[in-house]
């Protein structure tokens, strides 16, 4: 798999919030068709990396390549039109708009002819959303909101899906459902997924490869199975049982 060109390549990226450094030279590669996960403690800089890929905030040093093209200084809304979609931390669905309208927002840059077909597929993946299609986003349960956030991202027909902690605050059963959907999308549609997770056990089991981030640095990387076996990973992220 690795002899191909990476779909997303993050090279020596440094990101600052004012004077505070959040990323200290991060290298991450995501190849087409892969599920790659990034795990790390609270405040490690995972969300920052995800947002830096999307161009807000922009990297102060280093380079981000998408499909071979340098997008380090591209404005956010243009990056998101290149086939990258994101389900941001905290879901950020539109609370006063209905489920349908949220999905339409996701599809706003896609030719209208795809809409009905895409919608059908989304409702197959998340039957709950179909039941609730006319309900306002803000009144959905946490799990349903997360499904909606992912579904909304998928409506833009991405090649690369960025997910920031989709399991946050959800019951184990729902987490399992959502991870199933990610796996399914990856297997049948060949969707490339970059997944930020606290739930290290599930994430590493799902992912082809994983990275561990500590304090703005990538400290370990390898296949999901490898990382799961590593003593440091087990001690830091798995013992104490989140699974």
């Amino acid at each position: 798999m690795n002899e191909r060109q990476p779909l997303l390549s993050v090279r020596k990226v440094e990101t600052y919030y004012g004077k505070i450094v959040a990323l200290r030279g991060v290298d991450v590669d995501v190849y087409p068709g892969e599920i790659v996960t990034l795990i790390g403690a609270n405040g490690a800089g995972k969300s920052t990396l995800m947002m830096t890929i999307c161009g807000s905030p922009q990297a102060r040093a280093g380079q981000i390549l998408y499909d071979g093209e340098d997008i380090t200084a591209t404005p956010t809304h243009e990056i998101m039109r290149k086939g990258i979609a994101q389900s941001p931390e905290g879901r950020r669905i539109f609370p006063r708009m209905t489920v349908m309208e949220n999905l339409q927002m996701g599809a706003s840059l896609v030719a209208a002819e795809h809409f009905d077909g895409d919608l059908k597929r989304i409702f197959e993946l998340f039957p709950r959303l179909k039941e609730r299609s006319s309900q306002r986003g803000g009144t959905l349960s946490g799990g349903e909101q997360q499904m909606l956030a992912i579904a909304r991202a998928l409506m833009s027909r991405p090649k690369l899906l960025l997910l920031d902690e989709p399991s946050l605050g959800l019951a184990p059963l729902i987490v399992k459902q959502i991870f199933e959907v990610i796996k399914e999308l990856n297997r049948t549609d060949g969707l490339t997924v970059f997944l930020v997770e606290q739930n290290a056990f599930h994430a590493l089991k799902l992912a082809h490869r994983g990275y561990v981030m500590v304090n703005g640095n990538i400290t370990m990387s390898g296949t999901g199975a490898e990382l799961l076996k590593r003593e440091e990973v087990r001690a830091a992220y798995l013992e104490g049982g989140r699974h």
Binding site: C54, S56, T76, H77, E78, M80, R81, A85, Q86, P88, R92, I93, F94, P95, R96, M97, E101, Q104, M105, G106, S108, L109, R152, S156
Partner: peptide, 18 residues
């Protein structure tokens, strides 16, 4: 729809390519 979405959440709008 983008106007209304903007009223609700500007960051989400940007992340949808608006």
């Amino acid at each position: 729809r983008a106007w209304e979405a903007l009223r609700e959440d500007e960051i989400a709008c940007r992340s949808l390519g608006i």
